[in-house]
Simulated assay, not measured.
Amino acid sequence: MTIHTDHPTTALDRRAPDSGERFPESIPRAAVQRVLDNDRRREVLRCLLAEDGPLEVRTLVARIADAETDATSVTPLLERRQRVHVSLCRTHLPLLEDHRILSYDRVRGLVSPGATLSAFESLLDVGALERPVGARLD
């Protein structure tokens, strides 16, 4: 593996190779890295891990849009939420569903934990599972 010093390290990179933690065989390392390389996808995972069951897409959109809100932003709330909704529904949720990390019911507008979601818990910042309202995403 080539180490690129210009790329930030992630939790996946910082894990000790002999830590005993095993990632599900069904998700290649490159796919895990792709999932964790995006702020919105990480936040989706955090929100699902913090919930006990399914989460409405509109609730997820509101949480992510609020977390991305900048005090100096002039973009109206509705427009921000529309942008987040489009990116989640067209890009992020389908990708996460493809890897069985979540289940996305487009008709009912629900996102449920998938078979491999729990494996990501150790890769995410556990202290950030429940972010305060208005907290910025990294």
Rank of each mutant, 00 (worst) to 15 (best):
T2G: 11
H4D: 15
T5F: 11
D6W: 10
H7Y: 12
P8F: 12
P8W: 07
T10E: 03
A11C: 06
R15S: 12
R15E: 14
P17L: 07
S19W: 04
G20E: 09
F23A: 02
P24R: 07
E25T: 12
E25F: 09
S26K: 09
S26H: 08
R29N: 09
A30R: 14
V32G: 02
Q33K: 09
R34L: 10
V35W: 03
D37T: 05
N38H: 12
R40A: 06
R42S: 00
R42H: 04
R42N: 03
E43A: 06
V44L: 01
V44D: 01
R46W: 03
L49Y: 04
A50L: 09
E51Q: 11
G53L: 04
G53I: 08
G53W: 04
L55R: 01
V57R: 02
L60Y: 00
L60G: 02
V61I: 11
V61D: 02
R63M: 05
A65V: 04
E68H: 01
T69F: 13
T69E: 14
A71R: 15
T75A: 08
T75V: 15
R80Q: 09
R81C: 04
H85Q: 15
R90W: 08
T91L: 09
L93N: 02
L96W: 01
L96Y: 00
E97Q: 14
D98G: 11
H99K: 06
H99C: 04
R100E: 13
R100F: 06
S103T: 10
R108N: 15
R108K: 14
V111A: 04
T116Q: 08
T116E: 10
A119C: 10
E121C: 08
L123T: 02
L123K: 03
L124P: 02
L124K: 02
L124R: 03
V126A: 13
G127I: 00
A128T: 06
R131Q: 13
R131S: 10
R131C: 05
A135Y: 08
R136K: 15
R136D: 10
L137T: 01
L137E: 02
